[in-house]
Protein backbone atom coordinates (compact mmCIF):
# COMPACT_ATOMS: atom_id res chain seq x y z
CA UNK A 1 0.00 0.00 0.00
CA UNK A 2 1.33 3.41 -0.89
CA UNK A 3 1.58 6.25 1.57
CA UNK A 4 -1.91 7.06 2.71
CA UNK A 5 -1.34 10.52 4.04
CA UNK A 6 -2.56 12.78 1.31
CA UNK A 7 -0.96 15.92 0.12
CA UNK A 8 -3.13 18.85 0.93
CA UNK A 9 -3.86 20.64 -2.29
CA UNK A 10 -6.51 22.80 -3.87
CA UNK A 11 -6.19 20.78 -7.07
CA UNK A 12 -8.98 18.26 -6.64
CA UNK A 13 -10.79 17.70 -9.92
CA UNK A 14 -9.08 15.85 -12.76
CA UNK A 15 -11.87 16.12 -15.30
CA UNK A 16 -15.52 16.85 -15.83
CA UNK A 17 -17.58 15.66 -18.77
CA UNK A 18 -21.02 15.30 -20.26
CA UNK A 19 -21.55 12.33 -22.59
CA UNK A 20 -24.64 11.49 -24.63
CA UNK A 21 -26.40 8.14 -24.68
CA UNK A 22 -24.04 6.77 -27.33
CA UNK A 23 -21.10 7.56 -25.08
CA UNK A 24 -20.05 10.39 -27.39
CA UNK A 25 -18.55 13.52 -25.87
CA UNK A 26 -20.87 16.49 -25.62
CA UNK A 27 -18.42 18.56 -23.63
CA UNK A 28 -15.42 17.48 -21.60
CA UNK A 29 -12.62 19.21 -19.82
CA UNK A 30 -9.42 17.66 -18.48
CA UNK A 31 -7.37 19.52 -15.89
CA UNK A 32 -4.17 17.51 -15.74
CA UNK A 33 -2.12 15.37 -18.09
CA UNK A 34 -3.45 11.95 -17.11
CA UNK A 35 -4.79 11.76 -20.66
CA UNK A 36 -2.71 14.18 -22.72
CA UNK A 37 -4.27 13.58 -26.14
CA UNK A 38 -7.86 13.72 -27.33
CA UNK A 39 -7.54 10.14 -28.54
CA UNK A 40 -6.65 8.86 -25.07
CA UNK A 41 -9.37 11.00 -23.52
CA UNK A 42 -12.02 9.65 -25.84
CA UNK A 43 -10.88 6.08 -25.22
CA UNK A 44 -11.20 6.69 -21.51
CA UNK A 45 -14.68 8.18 -22.03
CA UNK A 46 -15.79 5.13 -24.02
CA UNK A 47 -14.53 2.86 -21.29
CA UNK A 48 -16.18 4.98 -18.61
CA UNK A 49 -19.48 5.00 -20.49
CA UNK A 50 -19.47 1.24 -21.00
CA UNK A 51 -18.91 0.70 -17.31
CA UNK A 52 -21.54 3.17 -16.13
CA UNK A 53 -24.42 3.57 -18.55
CA UNK A 54 -26.46 0.64 -17.34
CA UNK A 55 -25.66 0.48 -13.66
CA UNK A 56 -26.97 3.59 -12.00
CA UNK A 57 -24.55 3.27 -9.15
CA UNK A 58 -23.36 6.85 -8.69
CA UNK A 59 -19.68 6.03 -8.11
CA UNK A 60 -17.00 3.86 -9.71
CA UNK A 61 -13.24 3.39 -9.57
CA UNK A 62 -11.76 3.36 -13.02
CA UNK A 63 -8.17 3.44 -14.24
CA UNK A 64 -6.98 4.60 -10.83
CA UNK A 65 -9.50 7.40 -10.59
CA UNK A 66 -12.65 7.98 -8.63
CA UNK A 67 -15.52 8.84 -10.97
CA UNK A 68 -18.88 10.04 -9.70
CA UNK A 69 -21.78 10.33 -12.11
CA UNK A 70 -25.47 10.81 -12.63
CA UNK A 71 -27.70 10.67 -15.64
CA UNK A 72 -30.76 12.36 -17.06
CA UNK A 73 -32.83 11.31 -20.10
CA UNK A 74 -30.05 11.03 -22.72
CA UNK A 75 -27.14 12.68 -20.92
CA UNK A 76 -24.49 11.48 -18.48
CA UNK A 77 -22.67 13.86 -16.15
CA UNK A 78 -19.27 12.86 -14.77
CA UNK A 79 -16.74 14.30 -12.34
CA UNK A 80 -13.36 12.60 -11.99
CA UNK A 81 -10.78 12.92 -9.23
CA UNK A 82 -7.71 11.13 -7.97
CA UNK A 83 -8.34 7.68 -6.42
CA UNK A 84 -7.69 9.01 -2.93
CA UNK A 85 -9.75 12.15 -3.26
CA UNK A 86 -12.61 12.70 -0.80
CA UNK A 87 -15.54 11.15 -2.66
CA UNK A 88 -18.07 13.44 -1.02
CA UNK A 89 -16.24 16.50 -2.27
CA UNK A 90 -16.41 15.15 -5.82
CA UNK A 91 -20.13 14.46 -5.43
CA UNK A 92 -20.70 18.01 -4.24
CA UNK A 93 -19.08 19.26 -7.46
CA UNK A 94 -21.17 16.87 -9.56
CA UNK A 95 -24.38 18.01 -7.90
CA UNK A 96 -23.52 21.67 -8.33
CA UNK A 97 -22.75 21.03 -11.99
CA UNK A 98 -25.95 19.09 -12.62
CA UNK A 99 -28.18 21.47 -10.69
CA UNK A 100 -26.72 24.51 -12.41
CA UNK A 101 -27.30 22.99 -15.84
CA UNK A 102 -30.77 21.89 -14.81
CA UNK A 103 -31.64 25.40 -13.67
CA UNK A 104 -30.35 26.94 -16.88
CA UNK A 105 -32.25 24.48 -19.07
CA UNK A 106 -35.33 24.94 -16.89
CA UNK A 107 -35.31 21.31 -15.84
CA UNK A 108 -35.16 19.98 -19.43
CA UNK A 109 -31.87 18.22 -18.92
CA UNK A 110 -31.68 16.49 -22.29
CA UNK A 111 -29.33 16.67 -25.22
CA UNK A 112 -31.46 18.83 -27.48
CA UNK A 113 -32.03 21.64 -25.01
CA UNK A 114 -28.46 21.41 -23.79
CA UNK A 115 -27.17 21.90 -27.32
CA UNK A 116 -29.36 24.96 -27.71
CA UNK A 117 -27.75 26.51 -24.64
CA UNK A 118 -24.29 25.11 -25.18
CA UNK A 119 -22.70 28.54 -24.66
CA UNK A 120 -24.21 28.85 -21.19
CA UNK A 121 -23.28 25.28 -20.29
CA UNK A 122 -19.66 25.91 -21.27
CA UNK A 123 -19.62 29.08 -19.19
CA UNK A 124 -21.08 27.18 -16.24
CA UNK A 125 -18.37 24.53 -16.50
CA UNK A 126 -15.84 27.33 -16.49
CA UNK A 127 -17.36 28.78 -13.31
CA UNK A 128 -17.39 25.47 -11.43
CA UNK A 129 -13.79 24.35 -11.84
CA UNK A 130 -10.79 26.48 -12.75
CA UNK A 131 -7.73 24.47 -13.74
CA UNK A 132 -8.64 21.63 -11.37
CA UNK A 133 -9.58 23.86 -8.42
CA UNK A 134 -13.21 23.92 -7.30
CA UNK A 135 -14.14 27.53 -7.95
CA UNK A 136 -17.78 27.51 -6.89
CA UNK A 137 -19.96 24.67 -5.66
CA UNK A 138 -23.22 26.47 -5.15
CA UNK A 139 -25.47 25.96 -8.15
CA UNK A 140 -27.44 29.19 -7.83
CA UNK A 141 -24.23 31.23 -7.55
CA UNK A 142 -22.98 29.51 -10.71
CA UNK A 143 -26.15 30.29 -12.65
CA UNK A 144 -26.00 33.86 -11.46
CA UNK A 145 -22.41 34.23 -12.64
CA UNK A 146 -23.18 32.79 -16.03
CA UNK A 147 -25.78 35.54 -16.34
CA UNK A 148 -27.63 33.83 -19.12
CA UNK A 149 -30.62 35.81 -20.15
CA UNK A 150 -33.28 33.32 -19.18
CA UNK A 151 -35.99 35.20 -21.03
CA UNK A 152 -35.28 36.45 -24.48
CA UNK A 153 -37.01 39.44 -26.01
CA UNK A 154 -40.33 40.00 -24.19
CA UNK A 155 -43.30 38.98 -26.28
CA UNK A 156 -44.63 42.50 -26.68
CA UNK A 157 -41.40 43.63 -28.33
CA UNK A 158 -41.14 40.72 -30.72
CA UNK A 159 -41.92 41.25 -34.35
CA UNK A 160 -44.83 39.41 -35.94
CA UNK A 161 -42.39 37.26 -37.86
CA UNK A 162 -40.59 36.18 -34.69
CA UNK A 163 -43.82 35.21 -32.97
CA UNK A 164 -44.91 33.24 -36.02
CA UNK A 165 -41.58 31.44 -36.13
CA UNK A 166 -41.79 30.46 -32.46
CA UNK A 167 -45.33 29.18 -32.98
CA UNK A 168 -44.21 27.22 -36.04
CA UNK A 169 -41.35 25.63 -34.14
CA UNK A 170 -43.58 24.62 -31.32
CA UNK A 171 -46.17 23.15 -33.65
CA UNK A 172 -43.52 21.20 -35.52
CA UNK A 173 -42.20 19.73 -32.31
CA UNK A 174 -45.59 18.74 -31.00
CA UNK A 175 -46.22 16.95 -34.31
CA UNK A 176 -42.86 15.18 -34.32
CA UNK A 177 -43.37 13.82 -30.82
Amino acid sequence: MDSIVLDASLYTVKAIAILDNDGERVVARYYDDTYPTTKEQKEFEKNLFNKTHRANAEIIMLEGMTCVYRSSVDLYFYVMGSFNENELVLVSVLNAFYDAVSMMLRKNVEKRSLMESLDAVMLAMDEIVDGGVILEADSSAIVQRVAMKIDDVPITEQTVAQVLQTAKDQLKWSLLK
Binding site: R25, V27, A28, R29, T38, K39, Q41, K42, L118, D119, M122
Partner: peptide, 15 residues
Protein backbone atom coordinates in the same frame (compact mmCIF):
# COMPACT_ATOMS: atom_id res chain seq x y z
CA UNK B 1 -21.03 36.24 -32.77
CA UNK B 2 -21.93 34.25 -29.65
CA UNK B 3 -23.09 31.41 -31.85
CA UNK B 4 -19.85 31.38 -33.84
CA UNK B 5 -17.73 31.54 -30.68
CA UNK B 6 -19.73 28.59 -29.36
CA UNK B 7 -18.99 26.68 -32.53
CA UNK B 8 -15.27 27.42 -32.26
CA UNK B 9 -15.19 26.38 -28.63
CA UNK B 10 -17.15 23.24 -29.47
CA UNK B 11 -14.66 22.31 -32.18
CA UNK B 12 -11.72 22.79 -29.82
CA UNK B 13 -13.52 20.79 -27.15
CA UNK B 14 -14.06 17.92 -29.57
CA UNK B 15 -10.32 17.84 -30.12
Amino acid sequence: CIHILTKILYLINQG
